[in-house]
Every structure is written in C-alpha cells, then in structure tokens.
Simulated scan of single mutants.
Amino acid sequence: MVADIRPEAKDGFLLDEVPWGHFPLGDHVGEAIHLLHTGDSPVRTGTGVVSGMCANDMRAGAVLAVPFLIRIAADTRHPYRADALAEVSSPARARYFGVASRGELLLHRADTQYDDLYDDYGVEVTGYPAGWSVAGARIAITADTALLQPLLGDPDPEIRIHAAYALATATDSDRTVRAAFRTSLASEQDPIVRAALVLATAEATRAHPHPPTTTWMREQWQDPTQEPEVRLAAAIGWLCLTDKPAPDNLDAAVDRLATDERSHAMDGLPWMAIAGGSGQTGLQRCIRKMLHPEQPDPSECDDPWCPRH
C-alpha cells in the first residue's frame, strides 16, 4: 500500500496517484492533506482528520497520509509543520491510550508483517485488520527516517520531541535510529527533550532488544548529575525493558523526583500525555501502575468542575 507509492509522488505531493478511495474515508484524508499542504485549510484541519480517525480506530485510510505529513514536517517554511509531525506516528501505534503498565507502555512489535501483527491488534471498527494499518504506518516511517532524523536537531523543542516520538516506531534492526537518539542526547540542553530522547531510546530498544542499552538506562536513573526529568524517563524506560523487581533506590528516587510540578511538565511528552487517566498525569499513573500495581485507579470526581490533570 504505502510502500507502492512512488517516491516522486510523495516528494511532489502527487496526491492523485494515491489510492485514497480504496479505504474507508480515504478520500476525506486525501482532501485534508491537500488543504494542509497548500495552506488553504484552517489550522489543524488536515492533522485533525488523521488524529480523529486514529482515535476512532480507523487507521487504514490515515496510513496513506504518513509520508505527506513527514514532508510537511520537514518543510521549515510550512506554518503547520509541528501539527503535522505530531500526527505522523498516530497510525503506527494501537491500543496505547491510557496504557501505563511496564508490560505495555513503550511496547510495539518490531515486525512489520501483517500476519505477525494481526493477533496483537485485532480488527478496526471498519473491519480492516488493525495490525495491517500499524505495519503500513511503520513501513512509511522507516522509509523516511532520513527526513525525520534531522528534525532531532530542529530549533523548535516541540519538533525535536515529536521527531523522537515518530522515529521510535521505525524498524531499527541496524540500530541507526537508536544511535541517533544517543547522539542527540549528547548535545541536547532542554531537560524535557532529553527525557523524550531517553523514552525514545527505550521504545526502540524494546522493539529491538539490546542488553547494553538496558544497562545504560539503569545508569541514567541512578546518576544524580542527570536532570530529574531524564532520571524519571530512564526509570520508566528501564522498568519497561526488564522484568526485574524495582530496587528500593529506584522507588525512593522516583518518589523524591516526581513532584506535582514536574509531573505536569512531563505531560508535554507524548508518551506521558497518552498514559494519563483517572485524574492523574501520565507520570503519576505510570509510577502507580509500575511500582504499585496493587493500588486501584483513583475514583473519578463526579463534579464536572473537578480539577483535571
């Protein structure tokens, strides 16, 4: 599907060559991408279509938008490039809203074959196999890693964060993407972006296991010279990469570092934003699910004016 789109069609936005009509609401996606590319749409119209379809478990048509969203994001002159990049990996992840356990957070399969992903992700509401859509999106992202990797050095920290989030879903058998995360981390100054690079490294490593990286992740959360955001991200990453019991010093470090202010700041990371729920930030919910799984979800407040995370 996506792999069959000619490079010239992707680079030239030859949208008529894309089989939008073969998939539910595909024509709607194609028109939204056209309007977004030409700047004739209101802010976020194109990206809103993609995010809405993914939220409604209708990824098949949205997958076709991925190569074009990447090219809009890579265009430094485009006014909505950050919005486009934020939606690049939406079709590449399934069943992840509200997921915060160490067994499921950061989990995606490295295989990009439909047969291997079908059982993992089931069927979309349209009847299309969800695994087929997820695989197609990851294939599209993997094909364009050369366009996404330079965005790890973009002047806009939001772009850097979402570039890491998208690249974390790429097939990375040769570990070049993970190496790019580590290289960027060495020069990155923003603590939240550094935390994003750590989580992206953990997600890539979960798909392509690498024991030295798991060891490195443990070193990061133990290192008192690291920023608290980095240590918290590394603690979560390490918990997702191993089934070992959490040591007492990890529990103590997390309890000390995870202040309310920091928890809300880290919701700027897409991994954390989608993990939140039950009145908790993503970080708070991950800590509870990973370190105290016996604790039930906090009761939701019945008052509609009740403060949310």
Rank of each mutant, 00 (worst) to 15 (best):
H309V: 08
A73V: 10
G277L: 03
P157D: 08
G30Q: 07
G52F: 10
F181T: 05
R178T: 13
G153V: 01
V125P: 00
A196I: 08
D243A: 13
L239K: 10
L85R: 09
L35G: 07
L147I: 00
T126I: 08
G103C: 00
V18Y: 07
S263L: 05
I287D: 05
R109Y: 13
A204C: 07
P91S: 12
P212T: 10
P67W: 04
E87T: 01
A137W: 06
Y114H: 12
P270V: 07
G279K: 07
R194F: 06
P19R: 06
S184G: 15
S263R: 15
D154V: 04
G282V: 04
V230W: 13
D243T: 14
C306R: 08
G21D: 15
D120N: 07
L197I: 08
G26S: 14
R138K: 14
T213A: 01
S89I: 01
Q280W: 02
L36T: 06
A137Q: 12
E294G: 15
P298Q: 06
M266F: 05
T47F: 04
G268P: 01
V43K: 14
A200Q: 12
V134H: 14
S41M: 06
A246D: 11
G39D: 10
A3K: 10
V254E: 02
E8F: 01
V193K: 12
E158M: 10
R182V: 12
V49T: 14
A235W: 04
I70G: 04
P224C: 08
S173W: 08
V198H: 07
D116K: 12
T213Q: 03
T76L: 06
W271R: 02
T38H: 13
T176H: 15
D174K: 13
V29P: 03
C240M: 07
V2I: 13
G277H: 12
R178H: 04
S41F: 08
D172N: 13
R288P: 01
R160S: 05
H22T: 03
T205G: 10
T176P: 01
Q149H: 12
V193L: 04
D115M: 02
V123C: 02
R44I: 00
F13H: 07
L85K: 06
E227C: 02
L152C: 07
H22N: 13
E158N: 10
T205Q: 10
P245H: 14
A166D: 11
H22K: 12
R81A: 09
H37P: 00
D251L: 14
P293N: 09
W132T: 09
M217L: 15
F68P: 01
D251S: 13
V63G: 07
D243E: 15
A9F: 05
A143Q: 14
F68L: 04
F181H: 09
P224Q: 11
P67R: 09
A55E: 11
Q113F: 09
M290T: 03
L151I: 12
V88Q: 02
L232S: 05
T201H: 06
G61W: 10
L69A: 04
A196Q: 11
V63R: 06
E104P: 00
D223R: 12
S41Y: 05
C301G: 02
L107W: 14
